[in-house]
Simulated assay, not measured.
Amino acid sequence: MQDDSISLNKFISDTGYCSRREADELIRQGRVILNNELAQLGNRYTPGDIVEVDGSYLSNGKPKKEKKVYLAFNKPAGITCTTDTNIAGNIITYINYPKRIFPIGRLDKDSEGLIFLTNDGDIVNKILRASNEHEKEYIVRVNKSITPYFLEKMSKGVPILDTVTLPCKISKLGNHTFKIVLKQGLNRQIRRMCEYFEFEVESLKRVRIMNIALDKIALGKWRYLSDVEIAQIESMVKDSSKTALKPIKKAKPVEAKNAKKAKLDIPKEAFELPSKSKKPKQSSFKEYRKNKKR
């Protein structure tokens, strides 16, 4: 069994009450009480012990609650969002924070930008459970000129990973650069969406999560979230613990496969998912191909 005790004089010193040498002198003078008995030189303190000095409690026997930590980190490309410190370039070793923390969600190794880290498991669960509700904003650069067609199709949903992405906000910033706001977090989602339209992502930066913007956090640096920011996040996800994740509607496998063969020149109807109230139309894509040949 692991011994988590420390010398009593060190415990007293660690509280800031006095130095170790002064703590020893207090013990000699009979001014220190350990678990309702006069302390002796050489005594050890174990979490949960009661310690009094001159009638004042330095420890009342109740375990101290760990202070919650909330960080906003500007992750560089090449850093992996994992708590496994055996993996080279892991985010935990890179930040080297003195307390145990873990990332909320993930950001691809090849991507950079904003990610939260915390030791608050409750808020992690709430944010991840509310993942289909909160916004995440990205700036993306691709290898080809952005067209209105690309923007329109990206915004309405793209068939990837046996599903269709949720509608999203997207706007052109430059010839090869666009801003996109998602409300979900599929694996390498933006890269897969772009690949579907035969675009390659050259750089991807997350600049906002919910109410927190990257702002002036330098690359590779972090800052603490303010009490106001944390309160706003708590307010946004306060009902998430009572709400299960909504299942993602899946695209028809045949339609998604045929859509790829059609070189993307496909009407919106070909990707519509079946309605719960109506029977799905049979072979909508086949009818389109048939009519196109006429």
Rank of each mutant, 00 (worst) to 15 (best):
K290H: 11
I50D: 00
D215K: 15
P159E: 04
E287V: 01
K156N: 13
R289V: 11
L34Q: 11
D122S: 13
L273R: 12
S240A: 15
K216I: 03
A39D: 08
R141G: 07
T93Y: 09
N96I: 00
L128K: 07
K75L: 04
I217P: 07
G121Y: 10
N143M: 03
G78L: 09
S145G: 11
A218S: 13
L71P: 07
A39P: 10
I127A: 06
F199H: 13
T80Q: 04
I92L: 03
I95R: 02
E234L: 13
F178L: 13
K250T: 12
R188H: 10
T83Q: 06
T163V: 04
K249W: 01
K276Q: 08
G113E: 02
I115M: 07
T163M: 12
T165L: 02
M154G: 04
N43V: 00
L151F: 08
K293E: 10
V201H: 04
V201Y: 01
G55R: 05
N119K: 11
E198Q: 14
N258V: 08
K252L: 14
L41R: 08
K293H: 02
P103F: 10
L161R: 10
S284I: 15
Y196G: 00
A88R: 15
L173Q: 08
K221T: 03
F178Y: 06
V181H: 05
I248Y: 13
M210Y: 07
N43W: 05
T83M: 07
V164R: 12
S284E: 14
D120R: 08
E112Y: 05
L128H: 02
P148M: 06
R208G: 01
S226R: 00
S240K: 01
D215I: 06
A72Q: 00
E200H: 11
A259T: 10
K260L: 15
A256H: 09
L225N: 03
I139Y: 04
N43R: 07
Q2G: 09
I123D: 08
A251N: 13
D49I: 07
P167S: 03
D227H: 04
Y224E: 12
I33Q: 13
P280H: 14
D84Q: 01
R141H: 11
I217K: 07
G157W: 06
K250P: 03
I27T: 01
Q2E: 15
S171C: 03
G185C: 13
L41E: 06
I217F: 07
K216S: 15
I233V: 15
A213N: 14
F11D: 06
K109L: 00
D120W: 11
D84W: 02
G174Q: 01
I6S: 01
A218T: 04
S203R: 12
N125C: 02
